[in-house]
Amino acid sequence: MKNILKPTGILLIICVISSTILSVLYSRTKPIIEANNKAAIEAARKAVLPDAVKESFTAVDVNNIASGQPDFEPDSILFYKGYNQAGELVGFTYKSAGQGYSSSTKVVTMVGINLDLKIDKIKIIKQQETPGLGANCTSTDFTQHFSHKDPSTIKVDKDGGEIKSITGATITTRAVTNSIRDEFLTIKKDMMKQLDKGAE
């Protein structure tokens, strides 16, 4: 019996000590990590919609109720509204994800939409594509093609559209382009509603 109790006791002690240390550290680092994540995503929103003020972005969820909790991001959030210094609505941002060449990580794009429902800028915020080929999608040489385009009709050149594909990486180009378009088409109606509201 002693043979079982002693090791169990020692393991228990080690577990208790290490979990105590870790839980203290966790409670210390959690707010910093969340603040970092929030700052990163706000910087991305600002990058694709430069006219808006960084802190002004507010979420729009399915019921069109602007929620005031930016770090709480349920699936029901469709897009964010951005306001300028004077408090006027200047555009929207949304995230789209498309299956690229990497099986594990989708290509996630942050898209900024102007009030005339054209793309302002886009930014690839997450990708694991092939270095030198698909990974070139993060360069501005590629992303600038999207500016001032109508997101509901964009297509890759090989599919008869106007987006010039990255050399040797049509799959990545398609993932970005199609995901932007498809996501836009699902949220377009709600975006128009927000526009009407802003006009009132």
Binding site: I10, S18, I21, R28, T29, N36
Partner: peptide, 28 residues
């Protein structure tokens, strides 16, 4: 203090704790 029988789980516990410390600190 560690009985020979359970030394591997003990080592792993210690190592895992330090790794988690590094992980959280670096993330922050």
């Amino acid at each position: 203090f560690i009985p020979a029988k359970i030394r591997i789980p003990c080592f792993i516990l210690v190592i895992a704790s330090f790794v988690t410390i590094v992980d959280m600190t670096m993330h922050a």
